[in-house]
Write a protein that binds this DNA or RNA. Structure first.
Lengths: 339, 339
DNA sequence: AATGTATGTGCAAACGATTTCATGAACTGG
DNA sequence: CCAGTTCATGAAATCGTTTGCACATACATT
């Protein structure tokens, strides 16, 4: 391995000088710079990152924490997409991304501990926001820089996070259904512990209330993921005395599951029931019917969170921010107008 | 930050001793160990990873390189799943995972360079295998440990890789179609540069040939991803004088696109045409019809590649391996028997 | 009793960078 | 021409660990 000393020797300058040309220190003469740079290239020098990290006490790396694997949930295309978003800025800033690999909550917790105590990373992005989360608490307690994608479960004004206005999005998308003449509208969402679900559902309710339509518990389903339990729930829903004519689903992937169940029971979308959802994942435009869904700009969510985190790590006094990524409803073919 | 010296001071031993109890060196007496461990706990000591890396010249980290983003392709659930697989073993071995974040081929190449030259990682997993890939060449040239998920484009016996037997899988799944009475079978795949596509397609052809059925170029479609171009191709395919009765699609996600196009043109699956594909991503069981697909065990693919890579990094003389993950066809509802 | 071998620990030199401080040379202005 | 700056560079300390070697003590062997 070729070190700074080798380059120094080869150029006849001191190691300090080499270090300075690497940092592009203005006090080094252009001549020397040229010479040193050439030597670096010739010898194939690359700075050793551990050595540098050791002295500068920073790693230029951020940790990305995935939710504990509620199994299939991680197959959600949301994740690769948000990783791309994060990557787009980390790459530009020459940061690297360390991914969590724990599966259970406990494993993840240990991992985050290692990351922060061992100085693996300068900051952390949490890809979930769960009620009463150990990891979050730990990070706060240690005063370690982190940002949440989604809404923190408490201390909303004390934690930098990037989110959509899920309440309003939920409200708007169900208003769309209402505009199309629907009154009986159901909601199918994921875990009630997740803030996304909570917010979107609240928006859904608000829209109904505002329009003076009934909001009934029998119209609301919460299912971790749609295998066994989900199927029955959907069947029950559609065999109510007055089944809904519209459904708000809290996630595109979930929507394709719901779609299948419906069609399987002979219910056609959008002919018999209209369906709207969230995320605007690629999937939602290649499925039939293409989904009317709210585009939450996953990529941007990722990019902004990385940006905010990096700012935070370089400047510890950076103020707390609440970043709201605008959403946009994209109208496709899963909704029909009621007479 | 509490260092080894602090612990040493607190216990009245030398730093070396502390270091040795961390390593659980047998030459340290049980008493001392106990004492030191207590102090570490009390003071909240955690070893600084940069410092250690610097001297042991290893990072216990592996790099995972995603393919350059042929855009939507990365939204394939294949990726989160393989990351989970990798994570399952890295976590167990206390390794960390650094994700590539470059989008273009060029960016990725630079990134890999940084990773290896800067000693960011001990080894690298390539999540793709492309014809004449710069990154691969670079890794070989440098003699840097890496494994490929998929089949290397050359020097197959010189590069450790973990793969399915995609040829046989392709053959078997089309034989299933043939068994069900199909003779006119088409193939829809992704880029011809990707080895998965090539192998699966070759298997498809072999099956047809062996059965004495026609294999025609007009039955083969290659589409980067299924937006505009794909749609026409599929339409053309189905409006041939003798349209296929069965289709082999090289990827589940692609299948849902194909499915939609077909249904949109009034072609029902499996009534009018049967469809089989690959991967067995969660999606394929929640869509309607549920897909008959070959389960390639993505998770295992990831786990084995991580395992092989780690072995390789700890033991440089570890022999080259070709690891073949068994696949299994899972029969669902997208195929119908022809009279 | 003399020699040899375990056993447990400490000293000090790495590892490869960055950075503070010092220094000599060259320049500036009066 | 001298004092005061500015400029370009070097010496050496430092970051937190690991590890080869030395050393002292205790024990076993003849």
């Amino acid at each position: 391995m070729v070190t700074i000393k080798d380059v120094a020797k080869a150029t006849g300058v001191s190691p300090s000088t080499v270090s300075r040309v690497i940092a592009d220190n203005p006090r080094i003469s252009p001549d020397t710079k040229k010479k040193v740079r050439k030597a670096m290239k010739d010898l194939g020098y690359h700075t050793n990152i551990s050595a540098r990290n050791l002295v500068v006490k920073s790693t230029k790396a951020i940790g990305v924490i995935m939710p504990s694997s509620a199994d299939k949930a991680l197959q959600n295309p949301f994740f690769p997409e948000i990783l791309r978003g994060i990557g787009s800025v980390t790459h530009r800033m020459k940061y690297s991304v360390t991914l969590s690999s724990g599966q259970t909550e406990e494993e993840i917790y240990e991992e985050v501990q290692r990351m922060v105590f061992g100085s693996y990373v300068d900051g952390v992005i949490l890809l979930y926001s769960r009620l009463n989360d150990r990891v979050t608490n730990f990070l706060i307690e240690r005063g370690f820089p982190f940002v949440i994608v989604g809404k923190p479960y408490e201390n909303v004004n004390g934690i930098t996070h990037v989110d959509n206005d899920n309440f309003t999005a939920g409200k708007e998308i169900t208003e769309h259904l209402i505009d199309q003449g629907h009154e009986k509208i159901a909601f199918i969402g994921g875990s009630k512990d997740l803030f996304v679900t909570i917010d979107r559902e609240a928006g859904y309710e608000a829209a109904l209330q505002e329009a003076g339509h009934e909001v009934s518990d029998s119209y609301k389903i919460h299912t971790e993921f749609l295998k066994s339990g989900g199927r029955e729930a959907v069947e029950n829903l559609m065999s109510l005395k007055t089944p809904p004519t519209g459904i708000v689903v809290s996630d595109d992937l979930m929507s394709v599951g719901v779609l299948s169940m419906l069609e399987e029971s002979g219910v056609k979308v959008p002919r018999d029931v209209s369906l709207v959802s969230f995320n605007n994942v690629y999937l939602s435009e290649i499925i039939l019917p293409a989904l009317t869904t709210v585009d939450i700009q996953i990529h941007e969510l990722g990019a902004q969170s990385a940006k905010a985190l990096i700012e935070k790590t370089v400047n510890k006094t950076e103020p707390v921010k609440r970043i709201s990524i605008p959403y946009e409803i994209v109208y496709r073919d899963s909704v029909s107008r009621l007479p």
